[in-house]
């Protein structure tokens, strides 16, 4: 309970402890605490940013989905139009082809008719000649009367 030189020794000891603490203990620990605080703040900020970006991405995704839908319906409409057109074209082409074939058939028929008529005419001529022969009871010289016969044939 006496004040003695212990006082001085205690003061020195205390000062050394405080100095050591100030020099070697406080700064590294507080720096680490600050660093962790910063890390956490950065992390939170990054999370916020991420969330924001997520929202943006979702918005973009729904926008592009919408756009794609629009495009798809447009394409479908176009395709439908095109299909209708193709059908129309095909109809027209078919019609034309039908007409053409009809015309060809008609021409053919005409030709056949013509040919048949020619044939018929020839046969009729022959028949007429034969008839005339019989009528005249004499032979008609085909060579002599060829011109005559020709003229008859043409008249038919």
């Amino acid at each position: 309970m006496n004040i003695n030189a212990t006082l001085i020794a205690q003061m020195i000891m205390f000062a050394i402890f405080v100095w050591f603490c100030m020099r070697f203990i406080w700064p590294p620990i507080v720096n680490a605490l600050d660093a962790r605080k910063k890390q956490i703040a950065d992390g939170l900020a990054a999370a916020d940013r991420g969330k924001h970006e997520l929202e943006l991405a979702a918005k973009r995704a729904s926008e592009s989905l919408h756009e794609a839908k629009m495009k798809a319906s447009e394409i479908i409409a176009q395709a439908e139009k095109r299909a209708a057109q193709i059908v129309d074209d095909a109809k027209v082409a078919a019609q034309a082809e039908g007409d053409r074939q009809l015309a060809a058939a008609q021409a053919n028929i005409q030709q056949e008719v013509f040919r048949a008529r020619e044939q018929l005419r020839g046969q009729v001529a022959a028949l007429v000649v034969a008839g005339a022969e019989k009528v005249l009871r004499r032979e008609v010289d085909a060579k002599v009367h060829a011109d005559l016969l020709e003229a008859v044939t043409n008249e038919l």
Binding site: M1, I3, N4, T6, L7, A9, Q10, M11, M13, F14
Partner: peptide, 12 residues
């Protein structure tokens, strides 16, 4: 409980 210790600190 030794005043030397407490005064040592308080005087510093």
């Amino acid at each position: 409980t030794d005043p030397n210790a407490t005064f040592g600190m308080s005087i510093t």
